[in-house]
Design a protein around this nucleic acid. Structure first.
Length: 285
DNA sequence: TGATATGTTATCTT
DNA sequence: CAAGATAACATATC
C-alpha cells in the first residue's frame, strides 16, 4: 500500500526517468482510472515530477499536470524499449519484473517520443490519473496537512493538533488533513518505536511522548525511503522490482508473534477506525 | 462462501 | 456547525 516513502521512491525514479520526454500517445483502457481528455496532453513535455502526501504530480508544459494517486494497488511500470519481449533493468534482465505488459490490470499506457512507455496498473480500481491545471491542482491538494519531512512538522505543531482531539493518536497520524502521507503501515511502526499505545487519546500525550513520536515518525519514514518503500502488497518500483522495507517491519502484521523489543509480550491486533492495528501491550502504554 | 486487506471520500450521527 | 464515526468503493486472496 503506497504511503509517503513508497510514493517518494517512485517520485525520484520518475523524475530521473521521465524528465524531458514528450508524450505522443495515451491509451486509456479503463475509463474509471483516467480523468480528463487524454488528447490534451499529446505533444506535451515532462518538466518535472513532484510529490505531495501520497500524490504524484507530473508537471507538463502549458500549465498542465498529470496528477496520480495509486491508492491501494496502483503501480507505475516503465518500459524503456518498444520491444514487447525484451525488457532490461540496469543492463540485466530482472526476474522480479511484472510478467507481462500490458496485463489484465493495466488501466492506461502513456507512450513517449522515444518509444518508451509508462504503464499504469491497478488491480482494484481505486487509483487514478487526472489531467489537471495548476489552479485546480492547488485546490485539490490545498486541504492536505503538513508534510512530515518539511520544517512545518514541528513539535509545536503536533502539540497544537493533538491537544484539540480526543480521537486515538493513530487516527490523527493517518488524518491527511492534519499530517499528510502517513498510512497504516508507518503509523503502526512509528507508534511501536515510540512506545505509545495507538488507542491513547491524542490530547493525553505528554510533551515527552510527542517529542519521541515526532522523532520516530521521521526515522521510520526515512528508513522506508532508504529501503525503497515496502512492497507489502502490489507495490513495485518503476522498473518492476520490489521495495525492501517490509523486511524491517517490527509490528505491522506481526500479531501472535513475540515482541521484538521486550521479547516477552505477544503482539496484539485490534481495529481502530476499521483498520488493522498492531501493538505490544507491554511496550506501548 | 464470506471475511479480510486499505486510502480516500461521502454520508450519517453526535 | 463541526467533529467524529462509519460505509462505500473493488477485487484478489485465504
Amino acid at each position: 500500500m503506497p504511503e509517503l516513502p513508497e510514493v517518494e521512491t517512485l517520485k525520484r525514479q520518475l523524475e530521473k526517468t521521465l524528465k524531458g520526454k514528450i508524450i505522443v500517445k495515451v491509451e486509456v483502457l479503463q475509463k474509471k482510472s483516467f480523468f480528463g481528455n487524454p488528447q490534451k496532453i499529446i505533444g506535451l513535455k515532462i518538466k518535472k515530477v513532484e510529490r505531495r502526501a501520497k500524490y504524484l504530480i507530473i508537471n507538463l508544459n502549458k500549465n498542465l499536470n498529470l496528477l496520480i494517486h495509486l491508492k491501494l494497488t496502483g503501480q507505475l511500470i516503465y518500459q524503456p524499449l518498444s520491444s514487447k519481449s525484451l525488457r532490461i533493468v540496469g543492463g540485466h534482465p530482472s526476474l522480479d519484473w511484472i510478467a507481462k505488459l500490458p496485463n489484465k490490470h493495466t488501466r492506461a499506457i502513456i507512450n513517449f517520443h522515444d518509444k518508451s512507455r509508462l504503464f499504469f496498473n491497478d488491480m482494484r480500481l481505486f487509483g487514478w490519473m487526472r489531467i489537471i491545471s495548476k489552479q485546480a491542482l492547488s485546490l485539490q491538494i490545498g486541504k492536505l496537512g503538513v508534510e512530515p519531512l518539511s520544517k512545518n512538522f514541528s513539535e509545536e505543531y503536533l502539540k497544537k493538533i493533538f491537544s484539540k482531539s480526543s480521537r486515538p493518536i493513530k487516527l490523527i497520524l493517518m488524518d491527511q488533513e492534519k499530517i499528510s502521507g502517513i498510512g497504516n503501515i508507518y503509523s503502526n511502526e512509528a507508534l511501536f518505536a515510540a512506545g505509545i499505545n495507538p488507542q491513547k487519546r491524542a490530547k493525553d500525550l505528554k510533551n515527552k511522548e510527542i517529542k519521541k513520536l515526532r522523532y520516530w515518525i521521521l526515522k521510520v519514514l526515512k528508513l522506508g525511503i532508504k529501503h525503497g518503500g515496502a512492497s507489502e502488497d502490489t507495490y513495485r518500483h518503476l522498473n518492476g522490482s520490489l521495495g525492501n522495507y517490509q523486511k524491517h517491519f517490527l509490528v505491522y502484521q506481526k500479531q501472535g508473534q513475540r515482541c521484538q523489543k521486550c521479547h516477552k509480550a505477544i503482539i496484539k491486533k485490534i481495529q481502530i477506525g476499521g483498520r488493522g492495528t498492531f501493538f505490544c501491550p507491554n511496550c506501548q502504554k
